[in-house]
Design a protein around this nucleic acid. Structure first.
Lengths: 233, 233
DNA sequence: CTATAATTGTGTCTTATATACACTATTATA
DNA sequence: TATAATAGTGTATATAAGACACAATTATAG
């Protein structure tokens, strides 16, 4: 293996925006830094790209180190590369965002990293360009959830339609009509009734559904467009 | 300015997928390489990130070097970082895609780079992971054009509705109904009649329109979603 | 100079979907 | 057993999608 004569080799970091949902609010897993630089401030979970590591592998590693979770929804968002974005040394950061079902996490790993689940609406100021990263991820989540029925990744395996509605309401920060939501989501064919009922509910117990993974694949690819006639494959 | 102790500094490249439209087909500006590595093969236009250069600035520079064009639609697509994607040396590539009005290009610059406009449907095999990059860009173009009325970037300043329709048909590779297309596009309020007619047409000359830039800004942000009720701001 | 072929412009009908809204059912708790 | 809270279902109206038909313009051929 040879080398290019070009000399500008720089550090490549990865940062992960980790979204969760507690039934009421969209949450972010953030780190109160007990290390330099920017000790004491809030940031995303990050790390450097290693020598024999693909980008996606590195992002998965960083997510796993923090949460003990594997096989989550994880997608590359964008790469941030302003000259002075990192005051220590020029570093470009490849940013991923993850959707995790926050009930399955490894509490010990999270505590060990001094990380906390924080309501997206209460997000503190973050270091470097991490605020911009989060803002862009939030928008991407709205996109994706609107087009691709992606939101399920944030829910437990079994969920009720009202729970799903609360998730959508949290993502878009607006109220939806219960009756229309229910009709629409059922018409997608994405939900399979489990026959069970939600035991946790304090009043009328809702019907539990789970994703129909057959149809789900289709919905991950399809989307409804500006010209509905142009719905893609 | 200090340094991180981490040692894995690597080359950062940029590659540009340059889309055009000739009135019939979507085109790609590709390079027949007269330099190493992979001399004689086809590739995207690329380059390395310089020391005092932002990512977007570098992408603009590369686009300018090849086409003489500035101020085009240029957007980051994704970063590709597989370990062995470049056989010479580990390099990650931040990929941008550009939409250019291919009538305004600098022919000399293009010839000097041994570049050619090639129908997307006739795309030759490209080096490294450039095939994947183009495929992803093509999908992103479909997304964007469906959601954001972005396609105008590929047309001359003045255009007829049938020309716009041909562009959409090329992007999505399918026929659309003339009458419904016309009604729909007019109802968006994006078009301003210029009062002029298309002189080039061989039969009935179509009415020339141009973008209403006021409404355009809105359409760049808005999109119609999976739940139309959730159309975003 | 008129017929023709090609393309543009506009209207209308039917069907489907969005949206608004009202009543009934279930369950823990007082 | 009444109440408060939430879940489930139905229906009417407005809007948009999608299919389709006819009239208008213009270069070219006869």
């Amino acid at each position: 293996m040879g080398y290019y004569t070009h000399s500008n080799r720089i550090l490549v970091a990865l940062d992960c925006i980790i979204f969760g949902f507690d039934g009421e609010d969209i949450k972010l897993l953030l780190i109160k830094r007990n290390f330099e630089p920017e000790l004491g401030k809030w940031s995303l979970m990050g790390g450097f790209l290693e020598e024999n590591e693909d980008l996606e592998t590195a992002a998965q590693r960083i997510l796993y180190e923090l949460t003990g979770l594997k096989n989550n929804y994880l997608e590359q968002l964008q790469t941030f590369g302003s000259i002075n974005r990192d005051p220590v040394e020029r570093t470009i950061s490849v940013v991923y965002y993850a959707l995790v079902n926050s009930q399955q996490q490894d509490i010990n790993a999270i505590n060990a990293h001094n990380a906390y689940w924080i309501n997206l609406s209460d997000k503190p100021d973050l270091i470097f360009d991490h605020n911009r990263m989060v803002e862009q991820a939030r928008q991407q989540l709205r996109y994706k959830a609107a087009l691709h029925a992606i939101g399920f990744e944030l829910l437990p395996e079994q969920f009720t339609i009202p729970q799903l509605q609360k998730l959508y309401e949290a993502i878009y920060n607006r109220k939806l009509d219960r009756r229309n939501f229910s009709r629409k989501i059922i018409s997608t064919g994405l939900l399979l009734s489990t026959g069970q009922k939600d035991s946790r509910s304090a009043t009328k117990k809702g019907q539990l559904y789970r994703l129909d993974t057959t149809n789900y694949q289709r919905y991950l690819n399809d989307f409804v467009s500006f010209f509905p006639e142009l719905t893609l494959t």
